[in-house]
Structure formats: C-alpha cells, structure tokens
Design a protein around this nucleic acid. Structure first.
Lengths: 138, 138
DNA sequence: TATATTTACTTGCTTTTTGCAAGTACAAAG
DNA sequence: CTTTGTACTTGCAAAAAGCAAGTAAATATA
C-alpha cells in the first residue's frame, strides 16, 4: 500500500496529487469510454503506455480506492479492474477534459459522442456513470 | 515557442498533454480563484512551486494560448498574466477537480465556495469565468 | 505429458523531468 | 549610485519516465 503525498489541503491540489499525471486519467478513460478492464487491454491504447508505468498506476489507483481488482470469471490468470463509486465520480472530470480538448485542440472525436456531451452534458455523464457501474457488476 | 507533443488524437489525451502535470492547473487555480496575476504571486502558493518550473509552465501556457503576458500598468519590470478565452474554458475542469477532491479526499475548502458549487454549479462556473474575463480587462 | 501461449507483471538501465540553491538582469526607489 | 523588487536563468542532484528484456503462473495445444 503506497501512501499519497499531499502538497497542501487544497482540493484541486489534492485531486492533482491523485490524478494529475499524464497516464492515470487515460486508464480511467479506457474503462469509462472503451469498456476496458484488463492489463492487456490498457496496454493496447493508442498512447502506448509502458508496462511498468501501467502496473504502477493501477496499484496507485487501487490503493486510492478508485478501482478494484478481481480475478476474472473466465480465467484465473486474468484480472479485471473496475471502478468504485469514487472512480465513477471522476467521469465529470473526464467529460470536461473531452469538451475542452475537442474545442481548443486538434483532436479526433466521435461526432455522436461530442453531440451527446454538448446537447445534454448532465444526462451523458449519468449514462456513462451508469454504464461503469453495470460493468462493475458483470 | 515550444511545440506540444501529442501522444494521440484523443481529446482527453491531448488535454492531458497540455494540462496534465502537477503544476499547470494550480497556476490556473490561482488565477481563477485567488485572483493572482504575477510571477511573484504564483510563487507564494501553499504548494511552493520551484521558480524554474513556474517559468517553464508559464511559457508553455502562453505558447498554448491559454494565457497572455503583458507589462504591468504600474511597473515596467512587472508582468501580468491573464486568461484568454481558451483559458477561461478551463474553469469547468477546475470546478470538477474541486468537487471530486472535496468529496473524496481529506482537504480543506471554504464552505461557502463548496455550497455555491454544489447548489448551482453552472451559475458558479459562469461567475468565475466572468470574474476572470473582468480581470483580463483591468 | 510436454511444449507453447496467454496474461500479468518485474527488473535493470538510460533518458528525461523535477526540485533545489544560487546567480543574473533590469527597472525603480532611496 | 547603491539597494530593493521583480522576473527569471543556470547548474547540479534526485526522482520519475521510458525502453527492452526477463519472470511466473495459468491455459491451450501437440
């Protein structure tokens, strides 16, 4: 169990102590928007994260209670990672990052997802939170 | 002018390429919620950022068009940094980070700010965006 | 049953980034 | 014309990230 170093008591600062690096939120993105749940699936993302970094971040997210690890139903050599409620609450942050990036940076995004987020942000957030919870049950 | 390395075309990934480190969003927090605008003021935050990191991040934010630098009205040896519209659009991300941190981590937050964000998030976001724009005019 | 594959990491090493302390430059004040 | 304030820059050590190869246990295959 690795402890978290908090630089201050500010909530933004503390959130960044947990989530503020270049990889952590990409793992959560893959879980929420791509339905990924295993180590091997996370490694296959377009951004090509190194295996040791992935292992480190997954351990950190588990230590923070943002995701939970369990042996897969089908194979004993396989683990599935799922969001906890603390993790589900990160969805709004991901959505705001999508909207800002899509508006201000050269990116490629599924037009239907963008439209969904722009026309009914609250409903879309609830939808992806619900999907994440359902995966956590499956 | 330093160029941005994008790891992929994903909007979340790209947003993180710009904002996803432990210091950048703290500078923006200080501008939005503490009304700070100068190098010296940014150095005085509770998190004690190193001077070279601050200079590097300010240059990066300016290069990305998130903030603009101008000679101060009173002193020629002083610069003021202000948010552009691209920067003002980051306020919702900051607000979600505050809400998540305040809910799930041990932090200290002004109760009236928290209540404001919880009861009327949209209105609060617009208020702080407006304040940031007004500072940009002053 | 023996071998190969899948899945999930770990290890060692190099490169990059961060963090710290001291130094520089220039305008303004005394 | 020297001191102070403001904004950096530089050099070096420490930490983190990135890369390639190796390990280990469970499954599938021959």
């Amino acid at each position: 169990m690795k402890e978290l170093k908090q630089r201050s008591t500010c909530p933004i600062s503390t959130s960044l102590d947990v989530l503020g690096d270049k990889w952590t939120l990409l793992i959560l993105r893959d879980m929420v928007f791509a339905g990924k749940s295993t180590y091997g699936q996370f490694l296959q993302s377009a951004e090509k994260m190194a295996t040791n970094i992935l292992a480190d971040r997954l351990a950190g997210l588990e230590a923070q209670g943002i995701l939970s690890k369990a042996v897969a139903a089908d194979k004993k050599s396989k683990f599935t990672y799922r969001l906890t409620e603390k993790g589900v609450d990160i969805v709004p942050i991901l959505v705001e990052l999508i909207l800002w990036g899509a508006k201000h940076c050269p990116t490629i995004i599924d037009p239907s997802l963008l439209a969904e987020l722009q026309t009914g942000k609250g409903a879309a957030i609830e939808k992806y939170q619900r999907l994440a919870r359902e995966q956590a049950l499956a």
